Computed example of a mutant assay.
Amino acid sequence: MSFDSADFKHYARTVVDYFGLADIAIRAADKADFARLAEIQVAALCASGRDLYGPVKIKRFVERHLRQTLALCRTPNFYVAETHAGVVGCGGWTRVRSGDNEVPCAVSFYVDPEHQRRGIGRSLLTLTETSARKSGIAWLTAFPPLHGADMFRATGYAASDVVPFDLGDDYSLDLLVMRKRLVG
């Protein structure tokens, strides 16, 4: 089960209204959004993680992560937030293979640095959790970089482990494993 078109549009509007974002619209991402999402991801990582990770780690992370973003743009559970100026944020959920299992994960939450701290990321996460819940998912996992864990922590995700994400050539980036129960 997932959102039908009318249900999605109504709920997306309700979420952004709740967070006081009258000038924001949330919609499903598509392949045409990819170039802008790449810009947003690079800008967001450079703005908040430059001092922590350095340019080489950011470049390698983006190179690996953008393949996932392109694939996500073809799925029904990956969203973008738009203003009159265009796409300003993204995030959604997908199933990630972990050994023999598929784990439902909140993925690729990025907001353009010029639009951060306005509730856009939280609106995208709220819509993502609702979509996952409507699809019968009881727990959602997230793997944010250490500097990106605050939004998840503030919305009820609990951290369990730090795992290194291999970037090749002896580089890695630490990700925090976080989980949230979506149903009672």
Rank of each mutant, 00 (worst) to 15 (best):
T126L: 02
S131M: 08
R97P: 04
S160K: 05
M178V: 00
D150A: 13
F165G: 00
V62I: 15
F8S: 06
K134G: 03
P145W: 08
M151T: 09
F165E: 07
R95G: 06
V177D: 01
S160C: 06
F143R: 10
S108C: 12
Y110M: 07
A158T: 09
G136P: 09
A47F: 10
G91I: 01
D33W: 03
A132T: 09
D7Y: 02
F165T: 03
L21I: 09
R50C: 11
R181A: 03
P55E: 11
F143S: 05
R118C: 06
F152M: 05
P104S: 06
D7N: 08
S108N: 12
D170E: 15
T130P: 00
I26N: 03
G119Q: 06
S135P: 07
A47D: 12
V15P: 02
F143V: 03
R50L: 15
R153P: 03
K134N: 12
P104L: 02
L175M: 13
G49N: 14
A28F: 02
L21C: 09
V88I: 14
K31H: 13
S5L: 11
V107N: 01
K180Q: 11
D150L: 06
T126V: 09
A154F: 09
L45D: 07
G49S: 15
T141L: 09
Y11W: 08
D166M: 05
Q116G: 01
R95C: 03
E114P: 00
G99K: 07
Y171R: 02
